[in-house]
């Protein structure tokens, strides 16, 4: 318990609670359970994407293409739904996840087999995927009235007082909490990012491990493609434009070290919630969107500064040659 109180997650949780409290003083009712549930639901997509991104960052890589992947998969499912309203929604979700996995695998293969730096690979695929949205749709929008009620209704459907979207986010969090701590692959993510050289000597295939991180991030981006388009009931080329930076910001605020090997699922979730709360709280407090951007940016830098004081452990004997 004392260890938790000293962890960066505890600091972040404290900051999150302080933020909610502050917003409550400016706008009574902000901290009401109903509003908090609404904020969580609004942040669901960011949480899911941030978890995928966390896996990638843990392996000392980065995925800038998630938002474009989301836009492409969202557009494809929207067009399928518009063309064939009879297709069951679960099938469309499978298609979304499937396309997302393939796009993620493309990133992963380029990083693994061609050894191209991840930032370059995903900067490229960010543009390519976004361009494909335009090619697939011809630049046309898929509007609410073209989508079936089932398609739009699924993320909003209420189960035990929570929308399905929130349940999906909770399920994703739970799955990651288990997978990261209890599977070899989860452990390999930390090993590869923490010390790639040592990971090789431990029999871990660094490239393959990174590949799987990209595949996971891609699959989740695909899932979010459907969720996003269905929830906002519109698909167009610029859906979620620039959202990749929010995802990375959530990870960084959550204490996922950009240098890899350090970070937790809890951290990523809290980071996403912190960012989500800022975005919700500032408008109700009547703060202009430009200030919001400045405040979000400040939060990132403060978060990194706070995390900096914890070094991931000294490397002894950097210079053992005497």
């Amino acid at each position: 318990m004392t260890r938790f109180l000293k962890s960066r997650e505890a600091i972040l949780l404290g900051a999150l609670l302080a933020l909610v409290f502050l917003a409550e003083t400016r706008f009574s009712g902000f901290a009401a359970p109903g509003n908090l549930v609404r904020i969580f639901n609004d942040t669901s997509i960011l949480i899911i994407l941030a978890l995928g991104q966390t896996m990638v960052i843990l392996t000392r890589c980065i995925d800038l293409s998630q938002a474009s992947n989301l836009a492409l998969t969202g557009m494809v499912t929207a067009m399928m739904n518009a063309a064939m309203p009879g297709l069951p929604v679960p099938l469309l979700i499978l298609v979304a996840v499937g396309i997302g996995l393939v796009l993620g695998a493309l990133n992963g293969l380029l990083v693994w087999k061609l050894d191209i730096p991840p930032i370059v690979v995903t900067l490229g695929t960010l543009t390519i995927f976004r361009g494909l949205v335009f090619l697939v749709s011809g630049g046309a929008w898929v509007n609410s009235h073209e989508m079936s009620a089932a398609y739009k209704g699924f993320p909003r459907a209420d189960i035990l007082g929570l929308p399905v979207m929130s349940w999906i986010a909770l399920a994703t969090i739970a799955a990651f909490a288990v997978a990261v701590n209890r599977t070899s692959l989860g452990r390999a993510f930390y090993a590869v990012g923490g010390n790639p050289g040592a990971a090789v000597y431990t029999g871990i295939d660094v490239g393959r491990t990174r590949f799987w991180a990209f595949v996971i991030a891609g699959g989740l981006a695909g899932l979010c493609g459907y969720l996003w388009v269905a929830r906002y009931a519109v698909a167009y080329t610029d859906v979620a434009g620039g959202f990749e930076l929010d995802i990375i910001a959530a990870c960084v605020i959550g204490g996922i070290a950009i240098s890899g090997g350090l970070g937790t699922v809890t951290g990523a979730v809290l980071g996403a919630l912190f960012l989500g709360t800022i975005k919700n709280a500032l408008p109700v407090a009547g703060i202009s969107p430009f200030w919001q951007m400045a405040i979000s940016g400040t939060a990132i830098i403060v978060a990194v500064a706070v995390n900096r004081r914890r070094t991931p452990g000294r490397i002894i004997l950097k210079e053992a040659k005497a």
């Binding site: 050289g197 452990g313 490397i315």
Partner: peptide, 29 residues
Amino acid sequence: GHQGAITALPIFQNVTLPSLPQTSRHGFI
């Protein structure tokens, strides 16, 4: 420093890293 231990991981996870298949059941550690 570069090829041995993963300094950001705890001792027990460093020790078991290459032996995880032996300590796992159905893919879970």
